[in-house]
Design a protein around this nucleic acid. Structure first.
Lengths: 254, 254
DNA sequence: GTGCCTCGTTCGACAATGCTAAACGCTATC
DNA sequence: GATAGCGTTTAGCATTGTCGAACGAGGCAC
């Protein structure tokens, strides 16, 4: 394996550290967290600051993430082909289902939300684009783990946190769920991630028949479930949407 | 001035290049655009790819921005203090004015939108968080240029593009507008950026009385204007919101 | 089908580059 | 007013990233 550039790896580690820590971090904290000399950390931070990737509070001297990350992150969305193709279909799905729609792709150890359509009512909702969801408990995550080998490996390696009483963390049982997901072409999340919240998701394929993402809806269990199971018409709507997006991406329907 | 880390500067230039180019770029294009040897560019790109900041299309081998940027950019919003304080007030402003609300901060040569509340009706709207607005023609930009010396310098240096027939590009006239903005405490954009669209904005100050951002509303000129001027009640609402956020940030009201 | 061109990638050697450790000025604290 | 901690700067060394050239794989034209 070829060698990567040291200063870049360290800069990336700093950005992730700043993203993880709740509030701003001081230079000494950053240096000791990464095992670097203060001067080394300072040189990297100075450059990152000059480029807009980190900002420094003038008063305390502490560092936090910079605005350029927001600008570039938004640009990533603009270029994202899957997201662009899905935009039309997800709006329809939100309207027909009456629930919030999420579009996610595999990123590192979880699902990165790249598109989010609000539930079509006037309630206050926060945009979750850019947020991460776990692989083992969410509908989007199970779909990706069942259809993308890389996602599956990530799920096996990850520590599977129990979020609610219904969260499945044992690998054997999860594998059986993934087999079922592959067989029926969709996955559900019945209060396994959040109490009172259920979800359905289906995979999106590209022209090489590789899974490139997943689309699904999420809503209060009282609305999206009946007799403890996801309502069939919602499952059908989600699967139709996934198929439509796949076809837009060039996947053959047979 | 201290020296910055070369490889980091080059990596940042690459990310910006990838953000600027419409579609994916090839290695040779990137290397020649930045005046680097192909091997040098490849080493940086390989590291950026490993860290998730760029992705490579398996088929064509071309490079594009990576998902980690979206994740970090969203985290930037979560940590953003001004945005957090403004969240409550901007919702109220959108409801009372019936128009879309924007919150912006100075970034590089323009205004970066860090918060956007949709106009409270059922029309289809696209989220503009992460987008940039010019300093010389928008209400947010004029407010920042009038109250932040750094923003003012950026405005003077920038090339001021005429977007509509009403866009003011001459520096003398802009300076007079900025004087007026300082005197009355708000700025307007009367079809100077987009035909048929007008805006008002007011500055937000921190506890040291330094301008840290601007908040404003934007809407169709038929709704927000009367007799060719912004409606006074909208101006008052925007200024009230700006004052409330400033007070939340610790600014003394006197 | 074959040649050619261009692409992304790898290799090895050089020296420029970024790293380390120690000292600096500063602010806040007690 | 001494101290402890902060972010920052400095100087010198050797590690590190850079470069030019060569490699192998695809794609296009003919």
């Amino acid at each position: 394996m070829a060698k990567n550039i040291q200063s870049l790896e360290r800069a990336a580690a700093m950005l992730r550290l700043l993203a993880g820590g709740e509030r701003r971090l001081g230079l000494s904290d950053i240096a000791s967290s990464l095992g670097l000399a203060k001067a080394t950390a300072h040189g990297i931070l100075r450059t990152l600051q000059h480029e807009g990737f980190v900002e420094q509070d003038p008063g305390s001297g502490r560092y936090q993430l910079g605005a350029e990350l927001l600008r570039l992150g938004t640009t990533y969305l603009d270029v994202h082909e899957l997201r662009a193709r899905a935009l039309v279909w997800t709006d329809d799905l939100a309207r027909s289902s009456g629930e919030a729609v999420y579009l996610g792709v595999l990123h590192q150890h979880g699902v990165l939300i790249v598109h989010h359509v609000f539930r079509p009512d006037d309630s206050r909702q926060v945009l979750e684009v850019g947020a991460m969801q776990p692989l083992h408990s969410t509908a989007l995550g199970k779909v990706l783990a069942a259809t993308d080998p890389v996602a599956h490996a990530e799920l096996v390696d990850a520590k599977r946190e129990p979020f609610t009483a219904r969260t499945v963390t044992e690998l054997d049982e999860i594998e059986r769920t993934l087999d079922l997901t592959r067989a029926q072409g969709y996955a559900t999340d019945n209060e396994e991630t959040l109490e009172g919240v259920a979800a359905v998701a289906a995979p999106i394929y590209d022209r090489r028949r590789l899974a490139v993402g997943a689309v699904g809806i999420t809503g209060a269990v009282e609305r999206v479930c009946r007799d403890g199971e996801l309502r069939p018409e919602l499952i059908a709507a989600v699967r139709d949407t996934a198929r439509s997006v796949s076809r837009d991406l060039g996947a053959k329907p047979f």
